Amino acid sequence: MSVEPGWYVDPADPDTRRYWDGGGWIGAPIPVDATPPEGPPPAEPPPAPTPPAVPVPAPAAPVPAPGAPGAPGVGGAPAGRSQPGRPLPGQAYPWQPPQGHGHPQGPPPGWPPGGWPGRPPEPRPHGLPLAGFGARLVARLIDFAVVFALNAVVNGWFVWRLVDEVTPYWREVFRRAMAGDTSTDGLPQPSEQAGGLQVVILLIATALWLAYEVPTMASGGQTFGKRLVGVKVVPVSADEPLGFGRALRRWNTLGLPTLLWYCCGLGLLLQLVDALSPLFDHPLRQALHDKRAQTVVVQLPRNRRAAPGDGTAAQEDRTDPSGDTP
Rank of each mutant, 00 (worst) to 15 (best):
V233C: 08
D185T: 15
A238H: 10
R227I: 01
R18T: 02
K232I: 07
R246V: 03
H103I: 00
V32D: 02
W111G: 07
C263T: 12
K232H: 06
A152I: 07
T182P: 07
V63D: 13
G23W: 07
W7Y: 10
P121L: 05
V9F: 07
G85A: 11
P120Q: 01
I204P: 04
V297I: 14
K291I: 01
P104G: 09
G24P: 00
A307V: 13
V54I: 15
T258G: 12
S2H: 11
F244P: 09
K291C: 02
E240T: 12
A65T: 12
V154G: 03
E213N: 08
E172S: 03
A53I: 12
P235F: 05
H103N: 11
A177S: 14
D33K: 10
F224T: 09
G90Y: 05
A149N: 07
A287T: 04
D320F: 05
G24K: 01
P57G: 09
P121W: 01
V153D: 02
A211Y: 00
P52D: 13
F280P: 06
D320I: 03
V297T: 14
W170F: 15
F174T: 11
Q198K: 09
G132C: 00
Y212G: 04
Q222W: 02
D10I: 01
P14Q: 06
P84N: 09
M217L: 15
R250L: 01
R175G: 12
Q91A: 14
F244C: 04
S219V: 13
R18V: 05
W160M: 13
N252S: 15
G195A: 14
R227E: 03
D324E: 10
L128S: 00
G267L: 03
W160T: 13
L284M: 15
D181I: 01
Q189P: 04
R124W: 03
L269M: 13
P188F: 10
P5W: 01
V200P: 04
L248Y: 08
F174C: 07
F244R: 12
D15T: 15
P52A: 15
P123R: 05
P14L: 05
